[in-house]
Nucleic acid binder design. Sequence first.
DNA 1: CCTGAAGACTTCAACACTAAAGTTAGACCC
DNA 2: GGGTCTAACTTTAGTGTTGAAGTCTTCAGG
Lengths: 181, 181
Amino acid sequence: MTGQAIQEPTLDEQIAAYQREYGDLDPQVEKVVSALGRLNRRMNVAYGRQVATLGISNAEWEVLKTLVLAGTPYRMGPGELAKRLGLTPAAMTHRIDRMASEGLVTRDRDENNRVRVIVELTDEGRTKWLEAMRMASDFEGDLLQDLSADERGVLGELLIRVLRRVEHTQPDAGGRLTDLD
Amino acid sequence: MTGQAIQEPTLDEQIAAYQREYGDLDPQVEKVVSALGRLNRRMNVAYGRQVATLGISNAEWEVLKTLVLAGTPYRMGPGELAKRLGLTPAAMTHRIDRMASEGLVTRDRDENNRVRVIVELTDEGRTKWLEAMRMASDFEGDLLQDLSADERGVLGELLIRVLRRVEHTQPDAGGRLTDLD
DNA sequence: CCTGAAGACTTCAACACTAAAGTTAGACCC
DNA sequence: GGGTCTAACTTTAGTGTTGAAGTCTTCAGG
């Protein structure tokens, strides 16, 4: 079902409905937030469909990407992987089990410190990553094809400014964002 | 664990690493896509933390939102709910079970067509939605506070144009987006 | 050495989701 | 009005995730 089309009202209908139900709504803010959420959901469905053609899941692709980002020799401990992916160590253990049995990664004890485990990308894993990467960047190019280079730049900068607010701030007890600086 | 902080390299580091590993990468596109993905993940963690203070999960909040969007009397069938949320009907059955046992919704057979089931928001469910909505819009306002009104407008319009491409197109066999129009 | 404590996974039980099979009410046909 | 079809859920079996408990090194004292 992960590849199924999602059926929703149009964005404008949705915002109008929220305004009807919640008078205090700022339509401009809502527009940004709703578009962001929808876009992301659709993109994840699309990525899932693409990597499925390579025989891997979105979850496995996330692991491949994280290992590649570490740079050669593409190694990382399960704990570190879990932190980057926002998973519990338990989930990571199982995910690595699967991926190791599929030959995408190897899992070995660190010889210098036998408590530590080292997950390393196999050649097959790296190849899968490359194939997925090619499909993903084609898709991403298609996605932005209606935007000029300038517009893409503006979009990127605006998103990064919003991202900074969420990455560089800590929510207080009530969930409000306050500066850390 | 759903409320845990995520640890990642900075966006610029990440893009530099991808360029090292994948020469064909368009950094401008990657910047937009990566910022989008990160932003969304952080926002979902933040929403999850907020609604958790009301004793509900993100999943339950999605259902509340969908029912409210339907407008008074806030009714919808499980199948329709499932389609809007991108879930299987089976998952919907269980989610409604939980929410009914928590008093957020009621589940009844349609008197006119006893195959159909009607899920209806309770007053308690509507109250929870309102509380969650207030927290969410405060958070969303904070999120965009570094952007001027003009910038918010531009961001919204650019996102909507990208969204249109993904909503109005169908991926072909290779996953490329082609116009439906 | 031996003990206690901390760190880094792994195992276990419970829960949520998917795909597929099952159930039941209404619709259509003769 | 009985047989078959379809629609709309529900049930079942299997997989993936979480939180908590367990295991196995390593390290710091005594």
